[in-house]
Write a protein that binds this DNA or RNA. Structure first.
Lengths: 115, 115
DNA sequence: TTTATATATAAGTAAATGATTATATAAATG
DNA sequence: CATTTATATAATCATTTACTTATATATAAA
């Protein structure tokens, strides 16, 4: 049982749009491997904290990522139960683990205690 | 030889964005089966001719579709030689041939001589 | 309980998007 | 050549997007 219902083309367009931003696309690639907290994304993407938060909010509101709070941090991970998991994987499969930008991000990864 | 080079995540985001509009998404689905002229799209989507033309222009400018002129018509088809053909297929595979909206479009298809 | 840290939210803004209407172009037809 | 038909392009506009700065909230630490 792969899925309960296929998404409509309209729904697919919506999810594709959510993933059409380069930052969100790479956030999804990252969380598909492991969880990250907001401050780690801020470090890796070298973007403002509100900007990262807003991208995460969008991803979460469309059900693509999950949030778990631990201490003062909020960790984000891929929602593998999402209706959109099929498209997510279809698109993620297009991004190589050797992608230059992705490698750059990984190299900038710092421990959770961002201080 | 599947492809000469993998696309960067930035390029993938760009192509994903081009396909993130519901009209363009279905145009690609349609041309992946056979060629259509502009007036057929106008009929099927019940959209204005300039709007359709602009969507086609965008798809063509990103190399996703090809244009061939025959008589007074311009036919559009999938550019199977596109760098983006991998993502295109990955996303198209998510859209069922039984998709409601897609079937609707097919049912509204009229012969090329639109007059 | 004050202060620092992590994150979210609000408000504002410039740029991009997708439509519309009007007009231009180019081929076919009379 | 004048007219029709098919399509493209230009100009305009409302909406959405992704950022910024400023502020709020919530947890942890001192």
């Amino acid at each position: 049982m792969n899925h309960t219902h296929r998404l409509s083309s309209e729904e697919i367009a919506t999810y594709v749009k959510v993933m059409s931003d380069p930052t969100r696309l790479l956030i999804i690639k990252l969380v598909s491997k492991k969880e990250y907290c907001v401050c780690q994304f801020v470090d890796m993407f070298e973007m403002s904290q509100p900007s990262i938060s807003q991208h995460l909010k969008k991803l979460k509101s469309f059900g693509l990522v999950e949030e778990t709070r631990r201490g003062q941090w909020r960790f984000y991970s891929l929602n593998t139960a999402s209706d959109a998991i099929g498209i997510v994987h279809a698109i993620m499969n297009q991004i190589s683990d050797q992608d230059e930008r992705y490698i750059e991000l990984i190299n900038k990864e710092r421990p959770v205690d961002c201080g």
